[in-house]
Design a protein around this nucleic acid. Structure first.
Lengths: 202, 202
DNA sequence: ACCTTACCTGTCGAGTTCGACATGTCAAAG
DNA sequence: CTTTGACATGTCGAACTCGACAGGTAAGGT
């Protein structure tokens, strides 16, 4: 139940409408938690019901601005401080990257290049955000978080560039790809190896 | 629908039982995708139903070893290559880290230290894995992925150490925490600021 | 005046996830 | 011989997620 705490956290930063929260999830929180508006609006209603947030104003176009209550702040702190490790992530791009060694070089390269474009774009966004935070003498508190995002994007970008370089170089004959592009033809090895018993490795 | 492809991917690396897959999800895939056995077993059944995997052997304790079929390989490749960006992640620890600026220094520090211990532990695991891969002259293909994991853990660890150092140093009087520890007392500001209209920042 | 483009809030159903429950096997230690 | 602990597979219900559907509002351009 983290969506609840993500919303509380954003409202602790500043009061917002559901629409603004949706945008913040897509911008600042994109790298650690995703939620669509169809989750956010019902969640706000539930939170208001539980008195963890409250409507503190009405704006144009029927919009409601929510603010966190003291009970909400207490609950948020409790969650932040008492949290167990729970290091389980969900990251489709990461999964894809993990599986690339199964592909032959051309396919692999295509994936790396697509991801690199993506990472570079994200890096631009983050650097803009950093500049923006510096210029407006605003609260600053979240500057370190942006910095972390930039550093991680940097290492990911470097890694991707290395991998791309590696596909152009050596055609390692040892390393046989498991999944061939449909046309590649030679489908020779026995299709189903027997394996009655099995011991662990890794 | 990524669980399906995560399972296919692992079976493309080597045939495994459901139990082994569960362990691999917890070990190697922990950083990019999590799944529990209560998802994995039903998913294997569905995949077998669709002829994307097949039972290729029976082991001790009623265990079934699954292998990927050619249709499974084709489907896996299709997914890997045709994937859209989809950079939406889900990472509870990341979310927590993102929200730490809301806390006062003592709480913040506690979170950083807990996370640092966690990251250091993960780093050890990854370094062991790297050594293991080098020693056993095994397929090697996944060495780069391990390397990436190590690099990211490194920057995260460095960042956390910096943040911890920062909490001991300057007690910045500008930066007022939003969420105080229950005892801290001084709860003075007006509880609900009015906010009828609202313009965007960020 | 009309149109387009954000802005803004909501619901619904199908599919996904996860903790808890349930069951049984085998090896080694005591 | 009995107990402990790892091995191994499965189901179920409650909660969560997400794309699609739906509808209303205000500003700016032509």
């Amino acid at each position: 139940m983290s969506l609840r705490h993500a919303v509380l956290g954003l409202l602790a930063r500043r009061p917002s409408t559901g629409y603004e929260l949706t945008q913040t999830f897509d911008r600042s929180l994109r790298a650690s938690w995703h939620a669509s508006h169809s989750q956010i609006y019902p969640e706000l209603a539930k939170l208001a019901e539980a008195d963890l947030v409250e409507v503190i104003g009405h704006g144009a176009r029927r919009s409601k601005t929510y603010g966190i209550t003291q009970a909400g702040r207490d609950e948020l702190r409790r969650w932040l401080v008492e949290g167990r490790p729970d290091r389980s992530k969900r990251d489709e791009s990461g999964l894809r990257l993990f599986l690339t060694p199964l592909l032959d070089p051309a396919d692999r390269r295509a994936i790396f290049e697509r991801d690199l474009a993506d990472v570079d774009h994200e890096l631009d966004t983050l650097k803009d955000l950093r500049t923006e935070l510096q210029d407006t003498g605003s609260p600053q508190a979240f500057a370190s978080q942006v910095e972390l995002g930039i550093r991680i994007s940097d290492v990911l970008g470097d890694w991707l560039r290395e991998q791309i370089a590696a596909t152009t170089e050596t055609h390692d004959p040892e390393r046989q790809s498991q999944i061939h592009t449909p046309d590649a033809g030679h489908r020779s090895r026995s299709p189903a190896r027997k394996r009655a018993d099995h011991k662990d490795e890794q």
